[in-house]
Design a binder for these strands. Sequence first.
DNA 1: CTTTATGCAAACGATTTGCAATCCT
DNA 2: AGGATTGCAAATCGTTTGCATAAAG
Lengths: 151, 151
Amino acid sequence: MTKHSCHHSLSEAQAREVLNRSGLSRTKAKMGILITLSEASSPLSVAEIHKLLGGDASCDVSTVFRSITQFKEKGIIRESNLGEDFFRYELIGQEDHHHHHHVRCRDCGVIKPLPECDLSAFEKAILNLGFEKMEHHLEFTGICVKCLKDR
Amino acid sequence: MTKHSCHHSLSEAQAREVLNRSGLSRTKAKMGILITLSEASSPLSVAEIHKLLGGDASCDVSTVFRSITQFKEKGIIRESNLGEDFFRYELIGQEDHHHHHHVRCRDCGVIKPLPECDLSAFEKAILNLGFEKMEHHLEFTGICVKCLKDR
DNA sequence: CTTTATGCAAACGATTTGCAATCCT
DNA sequence: AGGATTGCAAATCGTTTGCATAAAG
């Protein structure tokens, strides 16, 4: 029983439910973005989301940005920086409320999820510095097996 | 004996030496940037470096970018992303060849260095995924004591 | 009907690049 | 001299914003 990245594509009804629960308006764009994110196997950039939004749900990039902003505020998605000059976003499923991070291949760009993190040592050190409401971003890059062969 | 952030301002001679050792040309801009970085107590953005370069060493922003690119290639500086939409750079002193990371206040922007990291668990997990030549970026943000009071 | 969202285009900030002039070795 | 470096301006790229129109509740 593989426990890998168990992302569940959202149905229309589920997407609607997510929006209701967060008090967000149900628009084609938001529905489309949520579903697109739910179907992705790794975090997507705004540009990618925009490109993936087909037909009815297609909208302007600015709308994607605005929607993403709202999703972030509501805690529906998680933002991560994988050493690129833009951010990537992924849905936060109800079962994985825990932080997690990624490895990204610096050659081909594949992105793999990593297991939950334990950074208690750091967090303790930071509390000692007097900081609160901590957040962290931990991202790895490397060269994946496939790209290692091509060298 | 405090062992905190012991950054040593580089003298002209030392800066020149750094450039020689890396096979980089000794120009006013590069000298200035190196010295500016050596005098900073936390990582600087390109814009900040540019602003700090006074008088003789002042140059175009594009030159700062080009120099930074070379410094990165030579491993003279370390790049980090602290949740901002640009990168920050700091000199890698000969005594601190080890990785380290930062906490940044999301309100006022203060940046504090953190002690060296032990991420062996993650690194092991990543090796199991078949990745090599790993690099990682771990950055924290929080609200510092000072800003916590202002709320 | 009143609020919120959207498209479009313009504005922005960070970074890159082409090219002719200039500095370095 | 001859290649590397710079300034300057234009070009990109990601992201944001103003505004008039359209959709949501």
